[in-house]
Computed example of a mutant assay.
Amino acid sequence: MTGTADSDRDVTATPPAQRGGSTGGPAGDDSPAVATPDPAAGAGTTPGAAGSPVKTVVHVVRHGEVHNPEGVLYGRMPGYHLSELGLEMAEVVGRHLAGRDVAHVVSSPLERAQETAQPLAAPHDLTVATDRRLIEAANVFEGKTFGVGDGAMSRPGNWKHLYNPFRPSWGEPYLDQVVRMRGALESARDAARGREAVCVSHQLPIWLLRSHVERRRLWHDPRKRQCTLASLTSFTFLGDEIVSVGYTEPAIELVPVHLRAGGARGSGA
């Protein structure tokens, strides 16, 4: 469940799974782990004694709402910009992060992500960098209307793309997305050592990155993704090691109610 009445409340904060176990719930369960205190609190503090690992936080932000009246699965298509509400969401996230020690902001090359990143960088006088590894997942249904629960899976013409949900057969392999997102995450960490960084990306790649870190299976029900529009999935590092993962929804009051429980309906990406 992603919705919350408190727009700045930390919904979950979990340590990454240890060897031989998982914090992501029972084996095979896609539900998030039990909440613990915000891992990003106090981020950006200076290292302690010589040789002690430095704390760095990387917030991976999903872009705001997109203007898409036709309900197209836009994927990597150019020309899809934030709606007025999406721009407002980005401003809220910018204010949420304004008091943080942000030293680096980087975005997917797609317009909706770039437009979300600008208000996040502005309070810190930063220029938005671009990392193609943060881009949306490739999908054979790009440009079409195809969503969970809209009957598209029952159309015979689509069956040739739906034979293997574990890969998945209709788009960029889940593992490929994890590899590129992990690379982008670590590059952002290196650019902001001892401080905080922000990466703006897209729902599926963000969720797969989190699932990988928390050692959950990558195959999942899209309706159960905890990655609402304009949400932050925050990875806290000590040195090069991820020690906790947090999730916050600073713009939740602006998110349409039907998109709060996963945001996977229709064409949202």
Rank of each mutant, 00 (worst) to 15 (best):
W219V: 11
A117C: 14
D221A: 06
A103N: 10
M1V: 14
G147Q: 06
N158D: 08
G239I: 11
E84T: 13
V148S: 02
E253H: 15
L110G: 01
R216S: 00
G75T: 04
G44N: 01
V257L: 14
G86T: 07
F146P: 05
V257E: 14
A17S: 15
L204N: 07
P15Q: 08
K144M: 15
P109G: 10
R216F: 00
L259N: 07
R217M: 11
D10Q: 13
A103L: 13
E196F: 01
V128D: 11
D30S: 08
P165R: 03
R223D: 07
F235K: 00
S31E: 02
A197P: 04
A230N: 00
T56R: 05
L110A: 09
R100Y: 10
S244I: 04
R265T: 14
G157F: 09
V102M: 02
E196G: 07
A13T: 06
R223M: 10
A13W: 04
R62E: 05
T236M: 07
S169D: 12
A35G: 09
P47R: 15
K55P: 03
G51Y: 05
S234H: 03
G3C: 11
I252Y: 02
R189V: 08
Q114T: 13
H63K: 07
S244V: 02
G25W: 00
P123C: 11
A41R: 15
G262M: 09
V245H: 00
A98R: 12
V57T: 12
G143R: 08
A98E: 13
A90I: 13
P119Y: 12
R260H: 01
R182T: 15
A152K: 07
G171H: 01
A197H: 09
H67W: 14
K224C: 02
E70M: 12
L120V: 10
F141H: 11
L120H: 04
Q177H: 09
I242A: 07
S169A: 15
I242S: 07
P39G: 08
P168H: 11
L162F: 10
R223W: 02
L120C: 13
F237H: 04
A184Q: 05
T130L: 04
Y247N: 03
L73R: 12
H67P: 08
E142R: 14
Y163I: 07
W207H: 12
G28A: 09
Y247Q: 05
R215T: 04
L232Y: 04
E84N: 13
G21F: 12
V213Y: 10
A251T: 05
H161K: 08
G71V: 02
A137R: 13
V178N: 01
I242L: 03
K224L: 14
Y74G: 01
T23Q: 08
G246S: 05
A261I: 12
Q118T: 15
S267Q: 07
P173G: 12
T23M: 03
G143K: 10
D131S: 00
A269V: 07
P26N: 03
L209V: 06
T14W: 04
R62F: 03
A197V: 11
Q226Y: 00
L110E: 14
T127M: 06
V72L: 08
S22Q: 10
V245E: 01
V58Y: 08
V60Y: 04
I135S: 14
A188N: 02
G28V: 05
H258Q: 14
R155H: 15
G157T: 05
L185V: 11
D125S: 15
V257Q: 11
G263L: 06
A35I: 05
R19N: 14
